[in-house]
Structures are given as structure tokens and as C-alpha cells.
Design a binder for these strands. Structure first.
Lengths: 221, 221
DNA sequence: ACCGAGGGCGACCAACGGACGGTGCCCAA
DNA sequence: TTGGGCACCGTCCGTTGGTCGCCCTCGGT
């Protein structure tokens, strides 16, 4: 599956540049280290606990519907959310940031320039319970492609929908057009984000930075 | 002594603006709460420990000589350091930041735009043992005045030296010209820092931001 | 020789950016 | 009706920005 999605994205890139991504890239920069490798037998890392105490009932909200790959303009059916909605969440975060900034200035406090923990907290307290940090960080680079080259972003969505790929595969594929854009901009991915009015409030994802670095290294061996 | 230094700085300000600072400002925004106020009897805050273990000997470096108020160009005599040297430390930090940035870019890592913990660590590891975070943060606003209005900064130094004031008093006095500059710039102290090539790598000190906020509040009651 | 004022900076802390992976949902069979 | 693959997001972690105040130093007596 990894290899398949890698092939796909190489395909996507073909008409905009010449480089080969397969054989490094995603595979070289694991984002979860899906290899079990070897169970480090004596590790004492405590388990993350979710299971609620018996008798204690926290009235827990059901989780949001998962995203599916949708074309631009297409509404997701059933218990799913579409990608237009995903991108709208980023716009909502931008609005919440503006509010946090206004409040901070009013009170003479430090004024954030990025979407910080404080902004997520503000969003949650103001009813946007469906926004949370891990989710937003997970798809930042997808939103970045949407902002920087909506044509290519739309094309990718249609392609992946047509093929019946899942969200994970589409998400992976979004990296490669971005790396190509970075190449065309002297590998300054930070600058690319900062120059875009909507993107500049988001941190550059670690993995995107790493992918750019790896590709650049391959260029001048 | 607080009141004395407040009087002094009001005096300094007289030919550049009209506002009264006394009665709020420093006294309203304690930077250490020099008042004993009342000993919170039952507080359990643990004591900070310095005393080395008996028998354990860490070869501890002697602390740096304290700063004294010197005129521009004047070398401190005896076991003291002058203010030109203090300001030079800020320039050194700027150089260390440039190095950290170069290394980060080379390795494709996050690239700091400000003097961060990482920069202080880098400085220390590269022999600048005399640089440390609390010291640099303590005098940032003094350096800011030096960068933004060297004339006024020099004037203040000469005045305070002449009067035999100690470093603490001079340091306090540095706030007020900065507040005046902020007023002339629509209270955008963040922007004032960011627009100055040397200053923009330093965080705006909390207390300076608070002073600006308080003065602005008094303007439109 | 001693003392008190002054201030340098080690060490602390809440909160941060960042990441992982358990849990529960959903769909295909 | 069941099973397994997927992904949402609670929760953790190393480090940060920010600060406090202990204790050393040194000039005055």
C-alpha cells in the first residue's frame, strides 16, 4: 500500500518535474514507524489509558465522522465528512485565531501569530468541539496544497476518489506536489508557508520539512 | 528608592511628552514584588537549593562581575563590567542565533527567528559561558532603548552615572523612554521590536508590554 | 575583619509544540 | 451478524519561555 501510493504520487508529479521519489521519501521518513521492528521487551513506558473508571461516567461525546476523499463541491453521504468540510475547519481556526489576537491586544498580552494550543482551547470553549489539535495538525499539508495550488489539489482529490483510495492514501499523496513546489522555491518551505496569507498561521509539519530536506540532499550528492 | 527612580524618569521624559507616570507604572506592575506584603505563612513552595553536597565538588565557575552604570565608551574599573559590554553581549547572542539558524537550515530542521533556549545552549557550548538567559532577559529593554534611540540611551547613562545611581535604578529608568516611543507608534511595542533589525530577535519583555498597556488605558478612560 | 546591599544566574514551573497508538466505528462479507 | 481495517483524538512527553529568589560578592566602615 505504501508503495502503491508512492507510485501514484510520482505519477501526479510527472508533468511538473523530473525527479524520482520512490525508494526514499515516505518510506525513509516513517510517520508512525509502522514496523513493529522488535518488541523492546523491558520497556516500561506506561500505556495510554482511555478506559473510563467503572462507575464513573463522563458523558463522552461520540467522535467525529471520519473523512473520505470527495471531489471539490461534493457532499459526503452517510456517516462521513468530505474534504471541503476539512478545509473549512482550517478557515474556522483562522477565525478563532483572529479572535484570540483581538482579545490579547485588548488586554495587552502576548499576541500569537500561529494557531497555538490557546487557539484550540478558545475554539473548544466557543462551541467548536469538533476541532482538535491532533486532527488539524494531521492534515495541515493537505490544506497547504489546497491553498498553494488548488488546481493540483482538486485534481488529486478527483483522482483518488475515482480510484477508491482511502483518506490515508490521499493524505500521503499530498506531500509530493508540495515537495515539488518547495523545489521550485529554493527549498524554502517555511517561506512558502509564510508568504501565503492563509497558510502562514500554520506550523510547517515536521514530516514535510524532512521530505524536502531529503529530496534536496539527493539533488547535490 | 522606588519613588526616587520614578521621579528621575519622569524628569527624563519631560521634554518629549506630557504624561505623568508616577503613581502607577513601576509601582503598579511589580517585577519582583519587592514589598514583603505579608509572609504567606503556610506556603509550601520548596526552597531553591544551591548548597552543594558536602564532598561533591563541581568546580563551579565564579559568577560574572556585576554591571555598573558607565558612560558610552567608558571602561569599567575593578571587579565590574560596563554597559557597552552588556550591549555587546546582545550582539554576540545575535551572532550565535545566526549560527544556529545556519545549522538548522543545513539539517532541514526548524529554524528559530528569536533568541531561544537553544541559542543560549549553543552559546554556552561554544565558550560563551558568560552568557545566560536570565541575565539577557533582565536587560532586554535597556538594549532596546540603546537600539531605538541611542541618543536618549546615552543621555540616560550619563545622567545616572553622574548621580551615582546603581544599575537597578538605571535599568528601571530605561522603561519610560520606551513607553514614550510606544505611544508615538500607536502602542505597537511588538511592531517596534520587529521592525528593528537588531531588536527583532528578542522577545518583548512582559513588564514592558504591561507598562505600555497601563499607560494606554490611562489615555482613554 | 565584618556586614549589608546589590544583583548574577541556577533552577524551577506552567504551558507549549509535537506525537503516538488504543479504542470504537463502520462496512463488506 | 461478525470481523478487521482504519482513523479520531485523549493523552503523553521533551522542551520551551519566563521568572524567582538564594547566596555570593564587594565596598564601606
Amino acid at each position: 500500500m505504501n508503495i502503491a501510493s508512492c507510485k501514484d504520487s510520482t505519477l501526479i508529479l510527472q508533468n511538473s518535474n523530473q525527479a524520482q521519489f520512490c525508494g526514499s521519501g515516505l518510506i525513509g521518513v516513517p510517520e508512525h514507524s509502522s514496523e513493529s521492528d522488535e518488541r523492546k521487551a523491558d520497556t516500561n513506558k506506561q500505556k495510554r489509558r482511555r478506559s473510563k473508571e467503572p462507575g464513573e461516567d463522563g458523558e463522552d461525546r461520540p467522535r467525529e465522522h471520519p473523512f473520505i476523499v470527495t471531489e471539490p463541491g461534493e457532499l459526503a453521504r452517510g456517516k462521513k465528512n468530505g474534504l471541503d468540510y476539512l478545509f473549512d475547519l482550517y478557515e474556522q481556526c483562522g477565525k478563532f485565531l483572529l479572535e484570540v489576537q483581538r482579545i490579547a491586544k485588548e488586554k495587552g498580552e502576548k499576541c500569537p501569530t500561529k494557531v497555538t494550543n490557546q487557539v484550540f482551547r478558545h475554539a473548544k470553549h466557543n462551541g467548536a468541539v469538533y476541532i482538535n489539535k491532533p486532527k488539524m495538525r494531521h492534515y495541515v499539508h493537505c490544506y497547504a496544497l489546497h491553498c498553494l495550488d488548488s488546481e493540483q489539489s482538486n485534481h488529486l482529490r478527483r483522482l483518488y476518489k475515482e480510484r477508491g483510495e482511502n483518506v490515508g492514501a490521499w493524505r500521503q499523496a499530498c506531500y509530493y506536489p508540495l515537495v515539488a513546489i518547495a523545489r521550485e522555491n529554493n527549498w524554502d518551505i517555511e517561506g512558502i508557508f509564510n508568504r501565503n496569507e492563509k497558510l502562514k498561521i500554520w506550523y510547517v509539519p515536521t514530516k514535510l520539512r524532512q521530505l524536502c530536506h531529503m529530496e534536496r540532499s539527493k539533488e547535490c550528492p
